[in-house]
Design a protein around this nucleic acid. Structure first.
Length: 454
RNA sequence: GCCGCUAUCGUCCAGGGGACUAGGACGCCGCCCUCUCAUGGCGGAAACCGGGGUUCGAAUCCCCGUAGCGGUACCA
């Protein structure tokens, strides 16, 4: 089995593209086949080297590797011209100066459901001859047979007047030359498939489909994946939050969680498995179980899944990732007491950063907890902590429990003022853990500053 | 407009003629745990797009309608 992932570098790699890459990768790894990476950059206007870099970078972050490539489609222009000329010579294609208006006029005359047929001219863009009768049937591995009647198909333009080839031609030739056995891509390409199949058949007839050993290359099998949409059912875009792989990374998601989540969009293991390691995904993934319905990208479920991965991760590993994410070091103790409270790497600093860089400013928190009884409770807590026999979590807990008991109040009446005093905010890791982490000296200093505050 | 794809809880995935009183997960609601936020545990609400047909029997098969999406570029 040889599959391919063929993004066009017209922007960052979006979630939909990442899912297509993942499915191809899963399929190749499951079957012990090869994955070819091809960059579809035949549109020089819109393709940039920066975008190519970004796509490669995104795939690397996702830890999806490939076995061949990246092959730049633009580098194959020579082969494309040769193949194009062969089709022209064999009479499967012709030059035409017909414009979009001409096509419209043709349909007005012959009916809206009649495909455009042009007259061969000496110059102009190159169109493929679509047979007058019959139909091209796409045997889609996911959707079954889809029949496209030739009368409905326009003679597609396969090359510009300057001889540079267009997408539907380049794809067909490249898939053929690369010996691709399974074309797995988004459903938006289903309608393009008959055109590509027609190019492939014309290419065979023109005799340009022979591999080195002279054998005819079999036509690839096709599988069209359901499309991915935003939460509102519309096409994915920036409005939907993290829509590109880079944005997912910056939002603090883990690549393994993203892989797991993306695999669940348009595919299910068959039983009720939700959390699956990449190894398990590889083992269980099959095209037969891919759904036909479009799916929506729902970030809340990704967040939950990401949280599961974070909680299940060894402390050292999580620390390493958070340190790389934040660019800080020496975070292990803070990470340890935050692990069960965060869902993404990005959640860590807002939760626990104040333990490292000092309390944050939150006037409303001070107003609510550091006035009246709160101040008094804080003073008691200070005294208790100053005299605590030991300053580990248990020692701190004991000392503070005594304060709660002594004041005969609900625990929060002591703990919240304390939390605001040492972190500045009402949200933090556990209070005993936080205080133990700070140590006696720093804790008392922060309490004193809070007490002196207003 | 034309051509095509799709249609099960708010979302994702099961179920593919009788096992459906339609299952699991996220989210939501409630309870428990609890120092905040979380985590964890328990419970709950929540769906077969509409209409015909086939059949003893339809979420499941067929047709029509509707809706969503895609294609219809000298874009990919």
């Amino acid at each position: 089995m040889r599959v391919r992932f063929a993004p066009s570098p017209t922007g960052a790699l979006h979630i939909g593209g990442a899912r297509t890459a993942l499915f191809n990768w899963l399929l190749a790894r499951h079957a012990g086949g090869e994955l070819v990476l091809r960059i579809e950059d035949t549109d020089a206007e819109r393709s940039t080297p920066e975008n190519v870099e970004q796509i490669l970078d995104a795939l690397q972050w996702l830890e999806l590797d490939w076995d061949e490539g990246p092959i730049l489609q633009s580098a194959r222009a020579g082969r494309h011209r040769e193949a194009l000329q062969a089709l022209l010579d064999a009479g499967h294609a012709y030059r035409s100066n017909a414009t979009a208006e001409d096509v419209k006029e043709y349909k007005r005359l012959h009916g809206a459901d009649r495909g455009f047929r042009g007259e061969p001219e000496s110059a102009g863009a190159v169109r493929l001859h679509v047979p007058a009768d019959g139909a091209t049937v796409v045997h889609d591995l996911i959707r079954g047979e889809t029949r496209f009647e030739h009368v409905h198909l326009d003679d597609p333009v396969i090359a510009r007047a300057d001889g540079s080839v267009l997408y539907n031609f380049a794809v067909a030739i490249d898939d053929l030359d690369a010996g691709i056995t399974h074309v797995v891509r988004g459903e938006d390409h289903l309608s393009n498939t008959p055109k590509q199949l027609l190019v492939l058949e014309a290419a065979r007839d023109a005799g340009i489909d022979r591999s080195e050993d002279g054998r005819q290359t079999p036509l690839p099998l096709y599988a069209h994946l359901p499309l991915l949409h935003g939460p509102d059912g519309k096409k994915l875009s920036k409005r939907h939050g993290a829509a590109s792989v880079q944005e997912l990374r910056d939002a603090g998601y883990l690549p393994e969680a993203v892989r797991n989540y993306l695999a669940l969009l348009g595919w299910g293991a068959g039983d009720d498995a939700t959390v699956m390691s990449t190894e398990e995904l590889i083992e269980r993934f099959t095209l037969e179980r891919v759904s036909r319905n479009p799916a929506r990208f729902d970030e809340t479920k990704l967040r939950w899944l990401n949280g599961r991965y974070i909680r299940g991760m060894p402390l050292g590993e999580l620390t390493r990732r958070i340190e790389r994410f934040t660019g800080r070091e020496g975070l292990q103790d803070a990470v340890r007491i935050s692990q069960e409270k965060i869902h993404t790497l990005a959640d860590f600093w807002p939760l626990a950063g104040s333990l490292i860089d000092g309390p944050v400013e939150d006037p409303s928190a001070r107003e609510r907890w550091l006035t009246g009884d709160g101040r008094a409770a804080l003073a008691d807590a200070r005294a208790a902590l100053a005299g605590a026999a030991s300053f580990d979590e248990a020692g701190v807990g004991e000392a503070l429990a005594a304060v709660v008991e002594g004041r005969a109040v609900k625990p929060r009446e002591v703990y919240q003022p304390l939390r605001v005093a040492i972190t500045g905010s009402t949200v933090s890791p556990g209070i005993f853990e936080s205080i133990a982490l700070l140590g006696r000296e720093e804790t008392l200093r922060r309490i004193d500053r809070a007490l002196a505050g207003d």
